[in-house]
Amino acid sequence: MIRFGVDFGGTKIEVAALDRSGQFVARVRKPNPGSYEAALEVVADLLADAECMAGSSAARLGLGIPGSISPRTGLIRNANSVYLNGRTFAQDLEARLARPVRLANDANCLALSEAADGAGAGQAVVFAAILGTGCGGGLVVDGRIIEGRNGIAGEWGHMPLPWPRPDDEPAPACWCGRKGCLETWIAGPAFARDAGHPTGQSVMAAIETGDAGAISALDRLIDRTGRALALICDMVDPDVIVLGGGLSNIAALYDRLPAAIAPHVFSDTFETPVRKAAHGDSSGVRGAVWLWPLDDA
């Protein structure tokens, strides 16, 4: 039995199909066009391509987005792809595709995928953080996404940076209307801005050449991310922290983050591992597929 999912990212949209064992049988992507109606069409086109590649039709679709559904209005909110906000995205896709759509936050999809058979497999409490174009978090407990009463559990990117230091001022403005959100400090664009580079990749390239400014920016990123993750450890004490998104490819994070987290955790011991998402940039779309369990098919 083949299931289909969509990873709706800030820069690209991906549709994939997985077989019963969790192996890809189709995977296609296109750049995100950056507008609502055009994005609906891209999803429809990609799904048609994936169905052709997989040799199977999608009876239903899982969808991960950088935002969530308001339980009060049923509308998308908190999406950094701001043209999704205030829209009935899942319903509009259902109408466009003539099949049911189940939607979740993209960080929740990352957490679900990694808890199922990735870096968090076998662990009861998995916190997954996306450090990419934006900054988000997802929480899975005993194999289930925890969304909470207001649908915002794990919404980590719009907390303020804790235990501020002098070099954390002034607090940058965030697209959400606040200042100093974690997304303005530890997402990819924030890392690049702090180093004075166009992209996070160019910062890492500069580090390889011994550039002192880039090295200092990486030190600040690790310190800030450690402080931010300590909040999560104090609140939910996860068995494992899994990182996804573009910055998750920085190897130094896994060597240095535990020591950056530990001094801020209200405990006499800190043994929580920080791991890279086992499925890399596949985890978002895999988690979207997992939104429809096999027994629901």
Rank of each mutant, 00 (worst) to 15 (best):
D19S: 12
A212S: 14
D255L: 12
I186A: 03
A128C: 14
A277T: 07
I232N: 03
C52P: 00
L61K: 05
T73R: 04
P238T: 09
R193V: 08
G132V: 10
A119T: 12
E155N: 01
A217R: 04
D194C: 14
I76E: 00
V285P: 04
G64I: 05
S216G: 14
T225Q: 04
C135M: 13
I241H: 06
F191A: 06
W292P: 09
A259V: 05
S216Y: 07
S21H: 15
M159C: 07
T225H: 01
L93N: 02
K30M: 09
E51R: 07
M1D: 12
A192M: 09
A115H: 14
D211K: 04
A297I: 15
V125W: 07
G55F: 11
C176G: 10
G177L: 11
M204Q: 13
V265Q: 03
L84M: 10
A228V: 07
F24K: 14
A192R: 07
R275E: 08
S56W: 12
F266A: 14
F127S: 06
V6F: 07
G10D: 04
L161G: 05
D237G: 00
E155S: 02
P31H: 06
I76F: 00
F24Q: 12
A195R: 10
G136P: 01
P162I: 06
L47P: 08
L294M: 14
A17Q: 09
V82G: 00
E155R: 00
P273T: 11
I222W: 01
V15T: 10
G120I: 12
A230T: 06
G180T: 12
G136F: 02
R256H: 12
D234N: 15
P71Q: 02
G118S: 10
I13C: 09
D295W: 14
R27Q: 13
R178Q: 15
L131H: 03
C233I: 03
G143F: 09
D281K: 05
S56G: 05
G22L: 12
R165L: 15
A98E: 14
A104N: 12
G118N: 11
A124C: 06
I76Q: 01
C52V: 12
F191Y: 15
T225E: 08
R60T: 02
A129G: 04
R102D: 02
F127P: 03
I65P: 01
T225N: 00
L84W: 05
V126P: 06
A278S: 13
R275G: 06
R60L: 05
L40G: 06
E169S: 10
T209I: 01
R178E: 15
N78Q: 09
P71N: 03
L218D: 00
E147V: 12
A259T: 08
L75R: 13
V82R: 07
Y83F: 15
Q123R: 15
R149T: 13
N78D: 14
P238R: 04
L61N: 09
G62S: 08
I65G: 00
I65S: 00
A98T: 13
L182G: 01
S283V: 13
S56E: 14
R286H: 09
T199N: 06
D296T: 14
E37P: 01
L218H: 02
I13T: 13
T11M: 12
V236Q: 03
D106L: 05
D223P: 02
D211F: 05
R27G: 03
F8A: 12
F127M: 09
